[in-house]
Design a binder for these strands. Structure first.
Lengths: 189, 189
DNA sequence: ACCTGAACACCGTTCAAGT
DNA sequence: ACCTGAACACCGTTCAAGT
């Protein structure tokens, strides 16, 4: 890549980060180009589609997220790891408004630039689930796909302005649906 | 309303039903007008916004849904009623692609034409929850807002093509998060 | 190689002009 | 009263023309 191109690339990326933080994931590509002081066509050659742009924006964060899953696996008990994983997921989702919808569409589409990142999150989640199931701390009648769907559903909910304040409680409830409750819990009376 | 206006109104509505069934909730208003053989401006005076159009389309279905909640309350045990309610909700959501997103935005906005319908669903749900909580078959640490959020989250998930096949299982899992598990369940070993 | 402006086909909104 | 076509300001896509 030529020097001026590289400069455009990184500059556009940092502007896009700001614009999306402001207007969410549906921000106008034209607007991003405008604010970056670059031709719209230039932006679109670097990032042919909105997904491509977000992939570039998200990849480092997604890498950090999946890495976190590995750490949790090593550091915590299987059920606690799942709970922490949910909190990390929610925090990630809240950092990019609308990202779950994008991921939900991308994770079954191998053509999508977000496909690989989604698969990484998926398999990291599945690993945590499998460990918990092996130890009997997670319900046995679900798999990685179900977990990913629940994470996406939760992620979508906390992304809605009206549901955002419930984020912690919803995480707690859905995590509770996965982690098997043990005797002595505070559920009855 | 003049006779020709009324005829336009109902005709547009039935065309809109078809177009939305085909293209989902983000179908082009222009396209609906075109197919109805009516000026775009005409459509927009009858239904000034997309939400207004959907309100007209949904109100009978939403009425039926909330009515169903009352029937379930009378006919079933408190926990079974909640489970059936979830199935009815999922079925409704699947009949209009994208309707949950609309409702999630509308249910906190009194200006929205969908506001009243959302409130009706909300309170019908809350009533089922309260009854189950009073009988000890639902977890006590949640309220109608939490339930509505969970329903919306589930509804969004089953609306995604990639998660749709998991609809039944996801309903089961989330319902299980709400309904208190009783001794003798098939959870452990 | 890389960038750009302009043309294109869309969208929802608005309004003056018709019946 | 009710309808309509046209103008408007937007969108993402595409491409010939510039450096």
């Amino acid at each position: 890549m030529r020097a001026d191109a590289r400069k455009n690339y990184t500059h556009v990326l940092s502007v896009a980060r700001d614009v999306i933080a402001e207007h969410g994931v549906n921000a106008s590509m034209r607007d991003i180009a405008r604010r970056a002081g670059v031709g719209l066509a230039t932006l679109l050659r670097h990032f042919p589609t909105r997904e491509a742009l977000y992939e570039a924006l998200l990849c480092t964060n997604l890498d950090k997220l999946t890495q976190k899953a590995g750490e949790l696996e090593a550091a915590k008990s299987s059920d606690q790891a799942l709970l922490s994983w949910f909190r990390n997921w929610v925090a990630f989702v809240q950092s990019y408004k609308g990202v779950v919808t994008l991921m939900a569409a991308a994770h079954t589409n191998p053509e999508s630039p977000l496909y690989a990142s989604c698969a990484a999150v998926h398999s990291a989640s599945a690993r945590l689930l499998l460990r918990a199931q092996a130890e009997g701390t997670a319900r046995a009648d679900m798999n990685g796909d179900d977990l990913f769907a629940l994470m996406a559903a939760l992620g979508w909910a906390v992304d809605q302005p009206s549901f955002a304040p419930l984020a912690d409680h919803l995480s707690h409830i859905i995590a509770g649906a996965i982690v098997t409750s043990r005797p002595g819990d505070d559920q009855s009376s």
